[in-house]
Design a protein around this nucleic acid. Sequence first.
RNA 1: CGGGGAGUGGCUCAGCCUGGUAGAGCACCUGGUUCGGGACCAGGGGGUCGGAGGUUCAAAUCCUCUCUCCCCGACCA
Length: 631
Amino acid sequence: MPQAVEPSPQKPVKASWYNNQFPCGIGKRWYDSARDLKSGTHNMHRWSALFIPTLREAPADAEVASHKFLVRAGYIRQLMAGVYSYLFLGNRSFNKIIAIVRQEMDKIGQEFFLPALHSREVWEASGRWSLMGDNLFRLKDRKGADLALGFTAEEVVTEIARKELRSYKQLPQIWYQITPKFRDEPRPKSGLLRVRQFTMKDSYSFDVDAAGLDVSYKKHYDTYCRIFDRCGLKYMVVEADSGAMGGKESHEFMVRTRAGEDQIVSCDGCDYAANMEKATSKLEPAQDLKPEGDGKPLEVHTPGQKTIEDVAKFLVVSPKNKIKTLALMTDEKDASGKKKSRAIIVLMRGDHQLNEAKLNATVAVATRPMEETEIEAMFNSPAGYLGPVGIEWAKDIKKDIDRPVLLVDKALEGRTNLIAGANKKDYHLKNLTPGKDFHPTAYADLRAVNAGEACPNCGRPLRIDTAVEIGHIFKLGYRYSETMGAHVLDKNGKEVMPIMGSYGIGIERILTAAVEQNNDENGFWLPRSIAPFEIVVTPVNVKEETMFKAAVDIAAKLESAGFDVILDDRDERPGVKFKDADLVGIPFRVNVGKKVTEGTVEVVLRSTHEVRDVTITAIVEYFQGVLRAHA
RNA sequence: CGGGGAGUGGCUCAGCCUGGUAGAGCACCUGGUUCGGGACCAGGGGGUCGGAGGUUCAAAUCCUCUCUCCCCGACCA
């Protein structure tokens, strides 16, 4: 029989089906079955015909729960380090997350689709072509021109803004996209948690002034809360390090989990929460020593006493009266590519630890510990007896670039009569007062917070947890407008730069965090809003006709009521189907077993394995009730 | 990039030390029995042992180089 070649008269395809059809199925709508039913194209999802490759055992190289289970449940398969394919179930869950993100973002912004392939020129223009180093994926086209794969899109949107925005009347703008991002991570890890290709919702705001940016920022803050609420995540919002770019304000949306890479400090007593890189605590005031002798720096013999503890014990003082001197170096390349090193000396209170992230943010460049020869050269003393006295420190970190930098932690500001090394083997100095006996380049908050220290707001003990970052909002300021030359005319006809914000959500991480938050030894369960299916209908034995027919019937009824249903019609033993159902993240299961003869089936809640008998006639009403409760 | 570990049917792994016919469980195919928490019996298919080179009569096994993956660190919007 010849196949019909002519297109049959179909329902007109809505444009939305074609919009945003891009790799990874991004933008593909997971459509409500009711519409398909009406159009007569509906096919019930039958497990037997689907590709859901579940595994009994976790892959040997998987470490964290989400990685193990997403592979075992047939959501993902690895192509190479940090690059994954999303299979049927994974993609379905993915698209549900994206649909939520899109729905909420559409309320505040406009969706774009920006290229993944970027020109070198825009990255040069922002200064990030060299700044990004190896993290930026680079490639060449056939003409040998340099290209990059999209890392984020500040450059691309600013390029558009630069060319197109002319007047304050066009502001504010919020532009967003949901597209793959590429980062050549030094170490991809933990399944989907840190990958080299991932999907990010990134948005960018342009406002005429800082007050406008505050509004755009707040809109994102609120929208992110709605998105994560709808995704069923337990999350917290923390103050984040605004980084070296000079941004003012930044918040991270964090989900507590052991698998996380970030450390967050929070208070159970109030709403204080901050990234470790930013967190502070209330210090109990330390008792200063009384001056000895004439109050001038006083050399004391401390033979063989090198560590803070040793010296404190030897001199019978508290480590709180000691200065810890940390000798660090930065290696930078100047314009000619020549390596230039600069000493960064950090003073901490004797019992405090340095937080490297805070230091990096302060000096805006990576540091390394000084080598022994470098220490000798600078201090004329072996390590263990280092101190700030007798060295000409830079007065300004940016201007005095030929002198070493002395950064002093704020906990030492205002303290008197401290003890530090004398830059002489076996000697320390007493009676040291910052600002009098030595002159810091700057005071800065460089101290690492410890669990149990007092909350800066309410004084109750702080806790420290590991967490996954699922979203980050950031007041960019003028960095890109300035470097790339974007400007508009304001009300007075004066040329001003638009002030920008940038905002990101990691789509994969929403899924990962949800799995990390909801799993047991048998598998995981997803919030129904992001689960690939809401209900799995499981006929215990497909060869028993009454059972099977009842199951098909129930699945069809639930579907036409608008539920997202999969029918496990496989001719497998019940144990196999139950195990798979528990594994793959579907929050509800309907067991169709012997009790069908009495008109009853079982509804199983995956999270608790709570079982409830429900009459078949009431099954739709039952779920409508449950979902109202779960809404 | 530094440190550690691993590459053997689709998956989990044994075999390697001490060189001599490539193994097990699961999965898969056929037939049968079973059917409420990963069944059983019988038969069957499938592996250049990551790759290259070397030593040897003979290499999964010993040696050299190399690629890939995982973990810790460094790094990370």
